[in-house]
Amino acid sequence: MRQLVLDTETTGLNARTGDRVIEIGAVELVNRRLTGNNLHFYINPERDSDPGALAVHGLTTEFLSDKPKFAEIAATLREYLSGAELIIHNAPFDVGFLHAEFERLSMPPLHEYCGAITDTLVVAKQMFPGKRNSLDALCDRFGISNAHRKLHGALLDAELLADVYLAMTRGQESLVIESIGEPGEAIRTDVTGLALSFAKLNLPVLRASEAEQAAHVATLDDIERAARKTAVWRALPSEAGVGEAG
């Protein structure tokens, strides 16, 4: 499964009134593992950033003036995103801006060539209702260092969000990672299944020694004396094999 953790920086807050994407960062996960096949662009938006946005990302008009325009990176971006599930914090914001950029170029909307879109802000609100669920707050909650995050940056934020996403969804991965036996026969479990198949395992049977059996009987005697009744293990039917030492 290929997933891309994505973030953008923009000139302002509203794509509908002409604000533009100025930075895109994406981190690739394949089967929940970082691959290093990341993507990062600075983009010339052909306009100034709003003062409030500039204070957040620090990307000046001068710095962006010699960077490629969105039209120059659109095909590369589309190919990179194709078929992948997107993991985005507050997804409507970033998706809305990318939709607007592709629309300007008469290109198909994002959802036509990428897979599902997972909004980690929605997931976090379900997990931690009533609490702060910003990226910084989630980093603190999961013990992920963000001390180097002085300003917002798309690639840095995508890297942090990848760590947060993996921590948030840790119960969804296989608890037995390595394959056992033939390919495709890995033993798997997840938060919903909790069922393991041991068909391919050669499990040793360790039988109790005489001393261990005697200790077991003595423990049952002690339990009965304290409870003043027969221990439940001895009360069970003997044919079930429960209550027989060994």
Rank of each mutant, 00 (worst) to 15 (best):
L77K: 02
L77R: 04
L77H: 02
R78C: 08
R78G: 08
E79Q: 11
E79T: 11
Y80H: 10
Y80V: 09
Y80S: 03
Y80Q: 05
Y80D: 06
Y80W: 11
L81V: 05
L81P: 00
L81Y: 01
L81N: 08
L81S: 02
S82A: 12
S82R: 13
G83E: 14
G83T: 07
A84K: 05
A84Y: 02
E85L: 00
E85C: 08
E85I: 07
L86M: 03
I87Q: 00
I87C: 00
I87L: 03
I87G: 00
I88A: 06
I88D: 10
I88V: 13
I88H: 05
I88W: 02
H89Q: 13
H89G: 10
N90F: 14
N90K: 14
N90Y: 14
A91I: 02
A91L: 03
P92S: 06
P92G: 08
P92F: 03
F93C: 11
F93K: 06
F93V: 03
F93N: 07
D94G: 12
D94N: 07
D94M: 11
V95R: 04
V95Y: 00
V95D: 02
V95G: 04
G96Y: 01
F97M: 10
L98K: 03
L98T: 02
H99R: 13
H99C: 07
H99Y: 14
A100G: 00
E101A: 09
E101G: 02
F102Q: 14
F102T: 12
F102P: 14
F102G: 12
E103K: 15
E103S: 12
R104Q: 13
R104N: 14
L105W: 10
L105I: 04
L105G: 10
M107Y: 13
M107F: 09
M107W: 09
P109N: 04
P109Y: 02
P109E: 05
L110P: 08
L110N: 07
H111M: 13
H111G: 08
H111P: 04
E112F: 05
E112C: 11
E112Q: 12
Y113K: 03
Y113T: 10
Y113D: 08
C114I: 15
C114N: 10
G115V: 11
G115D: 06
G115Y: 07
A116W: 05
A116S: 11
A116Y: 05
I117F: 08
I117M: 12
I117N: 08
I117V: 15
T118H: 07
T118A: 07
T118D: 03
D119A: 11
T120L: 07
L121C: 06
L121F: 11
V122Y: 14
V122T: 14
V122P: 00
V122F: 15
V123T: 13
V123Y: 06
V123N: 06
A124Q: 10
A124H: 01
A124I: 02
A124E: 02
K125V: 13
K125M: 12
K125C: 14
Q126N: 11
Q126E: 13
Q126T: 04
M127N: 11
M127L: 15
M127T: 15
F128M: 10
P129N: 05
P129G: 12
G130C: 12
G130F: 14
G130R: 15
G130S: 09
